[in-house]
Amino acid sequence: MKMAWKEIKKSKAKFIILGSIVFLVSLLTFIISGLANGLSMDNAALIKDMPAGQFYMDENAKETYNLSKIDEDTEKHVHKEYPDAAAFSIQMGFVVDGNDDQHSVSFVTSTESDLFENVNDGEIILDRSMQEDGIQVGDKLTNNQYSGEFTVKGFVDQKKYSHTPVAFISMDNYKEMYRTNHMQLLFIPGQDKAETINGLEAFSNTAFLDTIPSYSAEQMSLNMIIWFLVIISGMLFAIFFYMMNVQKIGLYGILKAIGVKTRTLFGMMWSQMLLITAIALVLSVSFSHLFNRVAPDGMPFDLGLETTLQLSGLFIVIGFIGATLSGIQIKRVEPLQAIQQGEM
């Protein structure tokens, strides 16, 4: 007999309150997680979208790619050894459009590679967010460090770095603008283990993301909030079921006295927890995806299926642990205690 469901039906208000709290906490968690992912993509989509491999920078650069200079001989040697390796550089800057409006961008240039947009001298390929700023293919853009004009060749999706759209330019244009003949970084795709390359320090994709200024600080703060919310939801379950169980000690005692198994009582509590969490999660996932649609353009929000499923699973596990901890009372309750009490 579905006692768990019968109790929910009979005590709707109690369970609606718990469900609403779980819904609100999980909704907040999903939204913050979406914002964390969104900010992460806004900060480093250029790097995050690259395949697994190893990044290399000058070992004297103190893990700051801006200070890194890859020696030309080393670059040639690596290219010879790993033909699909790419040397690239990233520099913050700006472009000015025909209306004299300035737009912050991250200039990116690379050796010929499938991993980056390859552009000719005087051409520029921009992240699609620039199109939303009114820039069109064929528009002319300028920069005070560059003697010529950039012609917009096209747009690419999801290429952001340090919260600015990426602007792919040719190596020669880059060298002119930043008065350098050296690339900052080397990337060798498909390498699980770092090679020892003289004068260079290796970083995995994740380790390299952490070298991006503000990236780890930003992500750590948001992840801390997410974990805090997940723990709060677990505690809510524990406290709520504890209070409910305290109220039901007499009932549990009587049920045990007439022969109901302790595991049946646990099963009843677990099914209630699972049902409430599932309903709350379905609602919060729906609302967070709705939020994704109505969120202002300037708000980076990215809540993927994988994150949604991971967080949902985590909520269920935490709810299960919380409810189980509070359910220890069920195991302890003596039938006799209940009989000696009055009417429930």
Binding site: K6, K10, A257, E343, M344
Partner: peptide, 12 residues
Amino acid sequence: FVFQASHLVPFL
């Protein structure tokens, strides 16, 4: 078992 109080399950 029959107890002093009926001890019925309130939601059944």
